[in-house]
C-alpha cells in the first residue's frame, strides 16, 4: 500500500527541494514599513522562510551571520526607494537573492499607520512569485 504523501508546509529546510530563506523587512515607520513587517510575518506563517530583525543584521551579530551563511536565500523587503534594508545588507557584505520594494508594487508611501490586508497580500504574492529576484 502506498504511503500518504507529506505536505511541505511549515519549515521546508528538511524536505527535498525546500529552500531555507531568511526574510528581512525594513521595518520602517511609514505605512510601507509596517506592511514590510506584516508581509514578513505572513510569509513566515506560510512557511516561506524565517522573518528576522533588520536591526540585528545592522549590528553585525555573529550568530545571525552564521545563520545567513547556512541559508539558501536572503530576502529583503524594503518599503520605499530609499532601500534601507538592501543598504544594510550591502554594508554587511550580505548577498541578496530577492529584493522587493513595496512602492514598486503600486503601494504609495504615506506617513500613516493604516494599511490593508490586500496590500500585505500583494507583497506576499510578489515574494512567492519571485518578482524581486536579483
Amino acid at each position: 500500500m502506498a504511503s500518504k504523501p507529506e505536505c511541505a508546509c511549515g519549515d521546508t529546510s528538511a524536505v527535498a527541494g525546500g529552500k531555507k530563506r531568511i526574510i528581512f523587512p525594513c521595518a520602517g515607520t511609514a505605512n510601507v514599513g509596517l506592511i514590510s513587517n506584516a508581509a514578513a510575518f505572513q510569509l513566515a506563517d506560510e512557511g516561506y522562510g524565517v522573518a528576522t530583525c533588520i536591526a540585528l543584521l545592522g549590528s553585525a551579530d555573529t550568530g545571525l551571520r552564521r545563520r545567513i551563511a547556512e541559508a539558501d536565500e536572503v530576502v529583503i523587503i524594503d518599503g520605499c526607494p530609499a532601500t534601507c534594508g538592501a543598504k544594510i545588507a550591502d554594508l554587511q557584505g550580505i548577498a541578496i537573492d530577492q529584493h522587493i520594494v513595496i512602492t514598486a508594487l503600486g503601494i504609495d508611501k504615506v506617513y500613516e499607520r493604516n494599511y490593508t490586508e490586500e496590500e500585505v497580500e500583494r507583497v506576499v504574492s510578489a515574494a512567492w512569485e519571485g518578482k524581486g529576484r536579483t
Binding site: A8, A16, Y48
Partner: peptide, 22 residues
Amino acid sequence: MLTPALAVDGEMKVSGRVADVK
C-alpha cells in the same frame, strides 16, 4: 510523496515546494 507538486502533460516537474513564476 511531497506536496505541492506540479505535472505538465502528465510528467511530474516539481514536488514538495512552491516554484516561483520565473
